[in-house]
Amino acid sequence: MTGIPVLRQARSREASFVYLLLGLGALVLALAVASLFIGRLGIGGVADLITVRGQDPETFRTLLVEVRLPRTVLALTVGATLGLSGAVLQGLLRNPLAEPFILGASSSAALGAVIVFYFGVAGGVALATPLGGVAGTMVATAALLALGGRAQEPLTLILAGVALNTLAAALTSLALNLAPSPYAALEIVFWILGSFADRSLDHLVLALPLMTLGWALLFSTWRALDALTLGEDAAASLGFNLASVKIRAILGCAFAVGAAVATTGVISFVGLVVPHVLRPFVGYRPSRLLPVSLLGGAALMLAADIGVRLIDTQLELKIGVVTALIGTPFFFHLLLVMRRSGQ
């Protein structure tokens, strides 16, 4: 029975996958707790918090539940969304450079939200801004798959993303240009930079169901993503309906990324970095990369958001600015690696 030792080997790999998930889960949990208690005052602030708790339990509760909790939960869920959607897009398109920001989905979500915001619909219907983001992402992702989804050359897809990003940026600029007051324009710009600060429980209640729906759709593609390792024809011959898989990926990205961006602004490169770093740990299997990237994205975003609060600057750094500064060199590095490997 030559099969038995190999079977055992396969099981031991399953075990290490479970440990990887547990480890990342514990990390997310620890960072979430830290994010609740560490604010602009740094570690020292925790002692103050405890003092407040003793003297004025009501203020403590308000601070924790209405100020800190939305920020923590948003960082966790938006990071999870970006990690997961990056992993799904990379698996679907078999392209390690695919990511919501690079492919223009994030900026299109921002554009959709800006349009809603700009025309004042947001004042009337609270759900309108996230739904504007969802619509923007849906249009962008569908256009992207139509433009470059079957492209053999990975860079063709990136060029399609460049085109979408340029278009979204141009239209957003138009909206800013026509903004009723400089204050309104500034507000839009600041919001697009991406941050978890000053988001309320209401924001969370609007975004969370949409993101959860998006995650469910994104996760439903997991087996097909494994089969797509062999290319589209082989995946179809293994019994997967690729049209359905693509629609679920588009809708999943639209709901999750659209709602995330409409709530926090554009946060770039998380969807690129997280799956790329974690891929070797799951043996390059696209299906297993999904839960791992979800947790990894959440951990990275929580850590980065704690970081921007601890860095001593006069104005708090926008997290979107920080991820862009760190992510861009990483993107160049990946481009160079791909060029060298002749892809």
């Binding site: 190999v6 494994d226 062999l230 082989a234 011959s237 293994l238 043996g283």
Partner: peptide
């Protein structure tokens, strides 16, 4: 069982893993 003319494999999975894909159905 369909064997495509293209021999592209998109991720550096092991041979074992690739064969498990054949068992997916």
């Amino acid at each position: 069982g369909y064997l495509s003319q293209s021999r592209a494999v998109h991720w550096p999975v092991t041979v074992d893993r690739l064969l498990y894909l054949g068992r997916l159905p």
